[in-house]
């Protein structure tokens, strides 16, 4: 959970990456500026995910810190470094993570099954989001995630056959619909929360 202090740290760190450093970083990533921008975003997104999967609470802050440090050495890197820049970012990220581990650890996020039992708001939003799905997507996701365990593999195989795709392609397709639903639910929950605040 961000505090005011965190927010100030974040602002300072973002400011550390000056426009000159940022331009130099993009130039190192790719000569084509547009492609370099995509690459930058991709690396940042991956660093955030890796930090988060390691259990780091402020994963975006750590990713930004990684980028800042790499940007600080970018002139040297442009001259001497060979290989995929992403791997260099990764090495720096490891170093930052180790530094982080030496600091006082924040208490882990605790959870109780019961705390997560109240999903009424999520259910209502899901109900609305399902209505927005195209019919074929809705049917696919309901069939794919059918809760009945017995014969599940066989049913999925039949579903894949009926769509003329492989099982893994079906898995990915169902997952993408689920991701779209997830985004819709998050948006809906935020809308509900802001509506409550307005009232």
């Amino acid at each position: 959970m961000s505090t005011d202090q965190d927010s100030r740290v974040r602002q300072k760190r973002n400011w550390d990456l000056s426009s000159e450093s940022f331009e130099a970083l993009l130039q190192w990533l790719n000569k084509d500026r547009e492609e370099a921008g995509r690459r930058y975003e991709e690396i940042r997104r991956k660093l955030i995910r890796i930090f988060a999967c390691r259990g780091c609470a402020e994963s975006d802050l750590l990713a930004d810190e990684t980028i800042n440090r790499v940007a600080g050495k970018v002139e040297e890197l442009a001259r001497h470094y060979e290989g995929d820049p992403a791997l260099y970012f990764y090495g720096v990220a490891n170093k930052i993570h180790l530094e982080q581990l030496k600091k006082v650890k924040p208490p882990p996020t605790t959870w109780e099954t019961a705390d997560l039992d109240d999903y009424e708001a999520e259910f209502d939003c899901l109900d609305r989001c399902m209505e927005k799905l195209p019919r074929d997507s809705r049917e696919l996701v309901l069939k794919y995630y059918d809760h009945e365990e017995s014969g599940k593999i066989q049913r999925r195989r039949m579903l894949a056959d009926s769509l003329n795709i492989g099982l893994n392609a079906l898995r990915i397709r169902a997952h993408r619909i689920r991701l779209a639903l997830h985004e819709c639910i998050i948006g809906c929950l935020e809308q509900e929360a802001s509506g409550r605040l307005a009232n």
């Binding site: 959970m1 988060a52 259990g55 609470a57 882990p108 996020t109 959870w111 705390d115 997560l116 039992d117 999903y119 999520e122 259910f123 939003c125 899901l126 109900d127 399902m130 309901l142 995630y145 059918d146 809760h147 009945e148 014969g151 049913r155 689920r178 639903l181 997830h182 639910i185 998050i186």
Partner: peptide, 29 residues
């Protein structure tokens, strides 16, 4: 380990809601 993140806990609740929804829509298969 896995659930030691607020994002995952939110995802977990949505997954529970989804599971209930699927069950409601198709309780018998």
């Amino acid at each position: 380990f896995f659930m030691n993140s607020e994002d995952r806990q939110r995802q977990f609740k949505i997954a529970k809601a989804f599971r209930s929804y699927v069950e409601r829509e198709d309780p018998s298969g």
